[in-house]
Design a protein around this nucleic acid. Structure first.
Lengths: 135, 135
DNA sequence: CGTTGTTTACGAAGCCCTTCGTATTGACAG
DNA sequence: CTGTCAATACGAAGGGCTTCGTAAACAACG
């Protein structure tokens, strides 16, 4: 167990997304609900879940013969750390530059832009003051 | 050569950031300007630059004995693709969810939030929202 | 010409991720 | 008990990334 599990790898993240959506699931259930583009053999999924269990990314209930796995990390926390990691590696820590790229039309549809506007508008403390810009 | 070079790996991105900041540089210059946390041996940097050259991530001028390398990809384009990749892998394509995580206080300082507000405010007006694309 | 120092080129080792094959265990029907 | 089916555990192969050691090419100097 780890208090601070490491960032999930690529394949781990794929399984994590299934667990986040479905909640606790057996190996077979996870395998069956993988998007077709991420299809993998049964033992591959099993092995991955075992690794995730060892890393602290997943917990499992062994009370029945068929183990039931669940995500040990909440999606928001993990996603936030993934974003922080990219901000650091690609933007030297400047989060606003990442947002700038995310706003480009190829990435954000008009609908998503509208949602983003709503997010900004809903932020607490809209007028900080010292930075000078008025809201 | 590739018209569409692949995404840079972790170590490649580190060198790319030096090239983006400094412009065309020799192997030694790149090595000398790596942040201390990313220090690497001379031949490591050389090998990496050769690989980046083969992948189309860097170009080089061989007119003098000491080759001069330069980034073959602009920062914005590369950063955008890195962001798109993460949006796909971690958020199922929902860019606004990535932005939401980027807005969290751990990632964006108040000053950066102000900049982000400014970015949003400067966007072309899409007040029509979902149905309202004008043509 | 030989020496010295710098640069490029090549190859290989070590590590991690991903995938799967095989063996073992357990439950259950006949 | 015995055979069958599903699930777990284990190990290993294959590939990519990262790092570096070593050799070869080249220039400059005495």
């Amino acid at each position: 167990m780890r208090r601070n599990p490491p960032l999930p790898t690529d394949a781990e993240l794929r399984l994590l997304r299934v667990l986040w959506e479905r909640g606790p699931s057996t190996v077979r259930e996870v395998q069956d609900h993988l998007p077709q583009s991420d299809a993998a053999g049964y033992t591959t999924v099993l092995k991955l879940l075992q690794i995730m269990h060892a890393k602290g990314l997943a917990v499992r209930d062994e009370s029945s013969r068929t183990h039931v796995y669940a995500a040990a990390v909440p999606p928001e926390n993990t996603q936030k750390r993934l974003v922080a990691d990219l901000v650091e590696r690609a933007f030297g820590g400047a989060a606003h530059r990442l947002v700038l790229q995310a706003l480009s039309p190829e990435l954000a549809s008009p609908e998503e832009l509208a949602r983003i506007r709503a997010l900004i508008a809903a932020l607490p403390d809209s007028s900080a003051g010292e930075a000078g810009g008025e809201g």
